[in-house]
Amino acid sequence: MSAPEEEFYSEERWQNWLDRLRDEDIDPEDEDSARLLLNLQDDVAIAVAKILTAHDDGDIDAEEATEELADIREVVLSEPEFDDEDKLMLVDGVQTSLVCVFYSAEQYIGDGVADETTVEEYVLAAVDAESEEDLDRALGLTACAGTRVIDGEELDMSVIEDVEYGLVTEWVNGLDSLQSALSDPEVIEDDD
């Protein structure tokens, strides 16, 4: 196996996004602010999609793919330094959405595709687990749904339309970013 030429994601890239957030007036109700947060999330999902693709194409083995994911996860899920509590909360929301992206990718590489049921059924079971306050099970089930998304099954976001906002809806939001990244892994410029 030849080492890939590119770095999948860097701490500098993540910091560039955080610097943009620091510099801008962020209002989640504002379309531009919402777009910036979504781009931040999508950018990480694209990096994860590239690792998955490199793994599936045989360019990197499972161990290297897992290490790459761990490196990105460490950067992205570390506590950012913000003086602004509101911005910190918004970044935390993005990080929460990405937790399931990482778990799904790791599960896919380590164990393959969860094949007991459909994406939708896994998500609904995760919603039930969250309502019973079994968050580990909820995350596990959402990650199972994520492995199916990675495998090409479509995640229809209407599955969570009537679900009360919570961790599962955040995680599914992350899977939606991953689904988009897998279908169109165009790099989002962090400096536009």
Rank of each mutant, 00 (worst) to 15 (best):
A138P: 02
V119T: 05
G166T: 08
Y122K: 02
Q41R: 08
D92Y: 15
S97I: 08
K50V: 07
A105T: 06
E64S: 12
I109N: 04
A70E: 15
V101G: 01
M157H: 15
A138E: 00
V159Q: 02
E154H: 13
V94I: 11
A62V: 10
S78W: 08
T66R: 15
D61K: 02
E31S: 12
G112I: 06
V163D: 09
A145G: 05
R35F: 12
L167Y: 14
L141M: 09
C144V: 08
D136A: 15
D92R: 14
G112H: 05
K50Y: 08
A125E: 07
E116F: 13
A129K: 09
A47R: 01
D92I: 13
L178T: 03
S177V: 02
L135F: 12
D57L: 12
A54G: 06
A70T: 11
E133T: 15
E79V: 14
E67Y: 11
S177M: 07
Q179V: 00
R73S: 06
C100Y: 06
D151W: 04
L124A: 06
G110M: 10
I109Y: 02
H55D: 08
S78H: 10
W171C: 01
I60R: 04
S158W: 08
S97T: 10
Q95S: 09
A45Q: 01
D61T: 04
V75R: 14
I51W: 02
D83W: 10
A54D: 03
I109T: 02
S131P: 06
S33Y: 07
A62S: 13
E153D: 12
E116Q: 13
L124W: 03
S33D: 05
L69A: 05
E132S: 14
V101Y: 01
Y108E: 00
V101C: 09
L52A: 03
A70D: 14
L90E: 09
L155S: 07
E106T: 09
E74H: 11
D134Q: 11
E64W: 10
V159N: 02
E121L: 06
E120P: 13
A129P: 00
E63C: 12
G146T: 04
Q95I: 05
I72R: 01
E161P: 06
V75N: 15
I72A: 04
L52W: 00
L167M: 14
E81L: 15
D156Q: 08
L36N: 04
T66A: 14
D156T: 09
R73G: 02
L36D: 00
E170W: 14
L90V: 06
D162C: 08
E85R: 11
E106M: 06
I160G: 01
T117E: 09
E63P: 10
